[in-house]
Design a protein around this nucleic acid. Sequence first.
DNA 1: CGGCATCCTACGCGATACTG
DNA 2: CAGTATCGCGTAGGATGCCG
Lengths: 102, 102
Amino acid sequence: MEHAMKTCPVGKVAALVGDPCSLLIVRDLLESPMRFSELERSLGSSSRTLAKKLKVLEKEKIVTRKEMRGTPACVKYSLTKKGAAFHEVVEAMRSYGTKYLR
Amino acid sequence: MEHAMKTCPVGKVAALVGDPCSLLIVRDLLESPMRFSELERSLGSSSRTLAKKLKVLEKEKIVTRKEMRGTPACVKYSLTKKGAAFHEVVEAMRSYGTKYLR
DNA sequence: CGGCATCCTACGCGATACTG
DNA sequence: CAGTATCGCGTAGGATGCCG
């Protein structure tokens, strides 16, 4: 499996956002920048998982972390240009889901 | 996480082919029908994993199993119309991967 | 609020071996 | 060739608790 995911463009994308969690993060952030807790609620995932996924996406330059000062803390996540480019992929998926999955 | 994947079209698609293996199966079958062993080699996965994924995709009417008689056995997998409709999604991914992932 | 640390469990998945 | 069965490990990911 490893080989295919490093060779082919499709495989590489799959390796990056090929899990439901990362994909849904991108989907949400395409809508608008969001805070950690907002994502947490939207996805219904644990903070642990969310934090880990966000870190990967940040390292891959898909997502930007912006920390506003103040107390309590406030952090906004948004998409980079590279991340926003997932728009086409997500829309293709949405279109498919709407048409074929009830 | 469960909720988001049953509510939103994108989530539902993710639940279906939101893992690298299933996605790569679809990618391959978009090219042409393939035999079990061909998929096995192409993906570099174990027969166990492949068989399980294929069963799911078959149950979801993404993939069709066609058994030719003869010995040794020969089985061809191909996409249904519903499966072929993933073309747009896969192409969007390929386009993204080509542009942004080296 | 936005995390990180810890613990714990389920399961994905490869390796191997065996059948029709 | 096309699977199924069994074992065994690595890991994803929830639950909980703590801290700046």
